Structure formats: C-alpha cells, structure tokens
Lab assay of single mutants.
Amino acid sequence: MPVRRGHVAPQNTFLDTIIRKFEGQSRKFIIANARVENCAVIYCNDGFCELCGYSRAEVMQRPCTCDFLHGPRTQRRAAAQIAQALLGAEERKVEIAFYRKDGSCFLCLVDVVPVKNEDGAVIMFILNFEVVMEKDMVGSPAHDTNHRGPPTSWLAPGRAKTFRLKLPALLALTARESSVRSGGAGGAGAPGAVVVDVDLTPAAPSSESLALDEVTAMDNHVAGLGPAEERRALVGPGSPPRSAPGQLPSPRAHSLNPDASGSSCSLARTRSRESCASVRRASSADDIEAMRAGVLPPPPRHASTGAMHPLRSGLLNSTSDSDLVRYRTISKIPQITLNFVDLKGDPFLASPTSDREIIAPKIKERTHNVTEKVTQVLSLGADVLPEYKLQAPRIHRWTILHYSPFKAVWDWLILLLVIYTAVFTPYSAAFLLKETEEGPPATECGYACQPLAVVDLIVDIMFIVDILINFRTTYVNANEEVVSHPGRIAVHYFKGWFLIDMVAAIPFDLLI
C-alpha cells in the first residue's frame, strides 16, 4: 500500500533555474538572501570558489559584500557603492579590487542584480563577478574607477581610450546646418538635424578633445543650467548677453562664444560640459537660429522629431539603469545623424518603425519583477520565466494532490484497515475457520451469522477504491517536481505499489 509523501509542494524551481543557467555559462556568482541580516550568502558556485580561493563552506553565510576579499588596494568608495546597491532595488555595476585567499590582487567587475517577489519586494541578490585585470595590471588604489561605466561593446579594446569628441564640431553647429540641408533625401539625416562627426583615429590627448566618459557625465550638469543662461549661451556672438549692473557675465554663455574659444586653444572642462549641455537642449539648428531671432517656433511634425517616441515608452518600462547606459552608448555611435529632440514631445505622434532597438522591449506582467540581467542570462521568455513566489501546480481535472487534506485522511483510514487485516486475518484463519468446520452448517442466516465476513468484505472494497484513487494521485519525481499527468501517474504506480495493492485487495476469504 503506498505511503508516498512529498510535502515540499507547491515547489518553486526558480532558484534552481537560475543556478542551472548560470552554471551553463561558466559564470562566477553568488546568491544572497536579502531578508536576513547583512544579506548572507546562501549559494556560491564553483567558479566563484576558484576565483577567490575560498571553499564553499568558508563563503556560505558570510555577508555578500565580500568584505573578506578586501585588501589594501580595495577602494572604500567601491565598497560603499556595493553596500548601497544592496540597500536599493536597481541593478548596478561596480569595479573593485579584490584579494584572493593567497593574497593576489585582481580588479573585478561586480554586477549586483536584485530579484523581487510578486509584491515588488527584493528577496534575493545575485552578484556576478568578472575579472577585468590581474594584480600586475591593477593601478594605484588612489585612482577611482567606479565613477565610470563599463566599456562599450562596439569599441575595440585597444581603442576604448582613444575615443574623442571634438569640441569644434559642437561649436560649428550653425555652420554645418547648410551642408545638412543640402544633403536632402540623399543624406542619412532628416531636415533640421545636426550631424556630429566623431574622430576615432588614435591621437595624443589634446586640450581640444573630450573623453567619452566626460560626455556621459554632461547629463548630470544640465539641471544646474538655468533657462535664461541656456538661451544666452545659444544666442551666440551676435547678441551678447546682458548683465545687470554690478553683475558679471555668465561664464556659461561665454563658453560657447566662437570668438572667445578661437582665441585660446584650450577650454576648461567645466565650460566644455556646460556648452555641450546647452546645445543638447535645442532640438535642431533651426531652433538655434530661432533663439537668435527671439522667436522659438513649435517643433515640426516630421520623422526626426518622432524618433524618440518609442524611446520614451522603453525608458518607462525599463527595469534597470543598464538600459540608460545602453541608450547613452548607442546615442554616441560615430558617423550617424543625431536628432536633438526633447523627450517631452507630442504624445499624438505616431511611433516610426526603427531597425535598431535601443531599449529592451516591454516586459510582460509575469516578468515585471525580474531584472534585465536575470532575463538576459536565463534566456527565457515571458511565458517560461515565473515570478519568485509559491505557485500552485497546474493539475488535470479529477486529480488528487498527494499533500491535500483528503489524501491525508484517506491514508490514515487505509492504515487502520491494514492494521485490522494484519490482526484479524490470522485470527480468523486459526480459530474461526476451525469452529466453522466443526459446527453445523448455517446457510440460512447468511452474513448475519458471520459479522467478521462483512467487515472483511468492506475492507476489500476499500482497498479496491484505494487502488483507483492512487491512479489519480500526484507524486514527486526525482527532481522534486509534482507530477499531475494521468499517464505518468499510471506508469509510476504500475512500477511501484500496484502489484502489492492488488494482492492485498483480493478477497481470499470469499474465494475459499
């Protein structure tokens, strides 16, 4: 008679799926529990143990900040960024110097990925580790590398530091407007667009060049630039800015003055950032001319202004700041037409079709709590990747769950009947059967004279019903998954307890 339990259901295979997918890609990662103190490590794979030199037993239950890997060259700011990422709910990448158990130093890129439950609360953290440099290539500990984003994938490793954006290309926007319009339909740009040429040739750093990471940081200074100062900065030398009595002219307006920039070969870094931020506020060169004239017309309804409409929906549905990093990277690809469009465009503009998908598509409701890094690593669709929660398995109709209350009560009843059979069957065979043979035949009273025979008949009927119930009862397979398919249940029961239950259900007393 089957006594099969499996009270692990309803099970959740999400954690096993993450481990299996990460292991298949030869990654070095740990999984931490966000619900406990210090976000203790609950799993670390073999790749991480080989990377740091510690065994799994030495890593388990330690804080996922990996303070046991810190050393003299470990930056405090990087460690603080990892700790801050564990307090938030967004994906974050941090470069930090770690030390192995043998004392060797290596520069590592740590990717902190939160995993949320159905309520939107962070319950786990996945920390992925990628070695960037070994100890002989690690720089000085005073050099802070965590304020910069990861290198873009479309640049060669040897040319990542030679990417320079020439400031004269930004200063000569109005001069290039006529050349853009003359391109017409034969050019790649839309009317009114501004073409910015980027020099990728390796050259020595000069005062006129600005690194790509500095251009990325310009967006942080746009908020500090007032509207009046932006307007004066875009007017140009024809209309000098008016300053109040006793007030000095704005240095932001002076930063885009061609006369002032041409007199000296070098520009201050602050002026460069502010000038680029001011130019980015204009949607095209037409807006710059309109600002000089004193009238700013409404933005025209053409394809170039609607190019950012799908980007707005993608940004609203993005799951991490990696989408913004990807957008900034692609927006700086050289030799393309940049349409400086305000994100607050007309909502009635139709979304044009684009061959290049900048932001990841909208994630469906079932995966809105899973970050983009987890979705990318697992390579699963929205119909396959579940949320991290207890999910009731989908069972067929008329199927009994093996952990249901009805099955528990039924098993206790069958257990009592088995005990009765084990006690009274030998007793009936030894004593009652002998008395029946010696006594007179009682054929007239039937079952009324033999109450134990009636009980034995009921017990046999219950055993037959138990066999039928076992054909529709779920079970737990070797992978700790609840199986509810009727065919698989029948095959599993035939290979197991079916023969024993059938022999126990045969009414031998009635056959004798």
Rank of each mutant, 00 (worst) to 15 (best):
2 P>A: 05
2 P>R: 05
9 A>G: 15
14 F>G: 07
22 F>V: 07
22 F>P: 02
23 E>G: 06
25 Q>C: 14
25 Q>H: 11
28 K>I: 09
28 K>S: 09
28 K>Y: 06
29 F>Q: 01
30 I>V: 13
31 I>G: 01
33 N>F: 01
36 V>G: 07
37 E>N: 11
38 N>R: 14
38 N>T: 06
40 A>Q: 10
41 V>M: 06
46 D>G: 05
46 D>M: 05
47 G>D: 05
55 S>R: 06
57 A>Q: 15
60 M>D: 01
62 R>I: 01
66 C>W: 01
67 D>Q: 15
68 F>M: 01
68 F>L: 01
69 L>Q: 01
72 P>I: 01
73 R>P: 01
74 T>S: 01
75 Q>P: 05
77 R>A: 13
78 A>Y: 01
79 A>F: 03
80 A>V: 13
82 I>A: 01
82 I>V: 11
83 A>Y: 06
84 Q>V: 05
89 A>W: 13
90 E>C: 08
90 E>V: 13
94 V>N: 01
96 I>L: 04
96 I>M: 14
97 A>V: 14
98 F>D: 01
99 Y>E: 01
101 K>L: 01
103 G>N: 08
103 G>A: 07
105 C>T: 15
106 F>W: 04
106 F>Y: 03
119 D>I: 06
120 G>P: 07
121 A>R: 07
126 I>A: 11
128 N>R: 06
129 F>M: 05
129 F>N: 01
129 F>W: 01
130 E>K: 05
133 M>Q: 06
134 E>Y: 06
134 E>W: 05
134 E>R: 14
139 G>W: 06
140 S>K: 14
141 P>C: 08
143 H>R: 14
144 D>P: 14
148 R>G: 09
151 P>I: 14
155 L>I: 14
156 A>Y: 06
163 F>C: 15
163 F>L: 06
164 R>W: 06
165 L>S: 14
166 K>I: 01
167 L>P: 15
167 L>N: 15
168 P>Y: 01
171 L>R: 15
172 A>S: 09
174 T>M: 05
174 T>Q: 14
177 E>N: 13
178 S>C: 06
179 S>G: 09
180 V>G: 09
180 V>E: 05
180 V>I: 14
182 S>Y: 15
182 S>T: 10
183 G>H: 10
186 G>M: 05
186 G>L: 07
187 G>Y: 06
190 A>L: 15
192 G>V: 03
193 A>I: 01
194 V>Y: 07
199 D>A: 04
200 L>S: 14
203 A>K: 13
205 P>C: 06
206 S>P: 15
206 S>Y: 05
210 L>A: 06
210 L>S: 10
212 L>K: 06
218 M>I: 07
219 D>N: 15
221 H>K: 15
223 A>H: 14
223 A>R: 14
227 P>W: 05
230 E>L: 05
236 G>Y: 15
236 G>P: 07
237 P>L: 12
239 S>H: 06
240 P>E: 12
240 P>N: 11
241 P>Y: 15
242 R>P: 11
246 G>K: 04
248 L>M: 07
249 P>G: 05
253 A>K: 15
254 H>S: 13
256 L>V: 14
257 N>P: 07
258 P>A: 14
259 D>M: 04
259 D>Y: 09
260 A>W: 12
264 S>M: 12
266 S>V: 12
268 A>D: 03
269 R>P: 14
273 R>H: 09
280 R>M: 14
283 S>Q: 11
285 A>M: 15
286 D>M: 06
287 D>F: 07
288 I>V: 07
288 I>M: 10
292 R>L: 11
292 R>A: 14
293 A>P: 14
300 P>S: 07
300 P>L: 07
302 H>K: 14
304 S>V: 14
304 S>K: 12
306 G>M: 06
312 R>L: 07
313 S>C: 14
315 L>H: 14
320 S>L: 07
320 S>F: 11
322 S>T: 15
328 R>E: 15
331 S>T: 14
338 L>T: 15
338 L>C: 15
343 L>Y: 07
344 K>H: 14
344 K>C: 10
344 K>I: 04
345 G>C: 05
348 F>W: 06
349 L>H: 08
351 S>M: 07
353 T>W: 05
354 S>I: 04
358 I>G: 05
360 A>R: 11
365 E>K: 14
366 R>T: 14
367 T>V: 09
367 T>Q: 09
368 H>A: 14
369 N>R: 08
373 K>Q: 10
375 T>Q: 04
377 V>F: 06
378 L>E: 01
381 G>N: 07
382 A>D: 11
384 V>Q: 08
385 L>M: 14
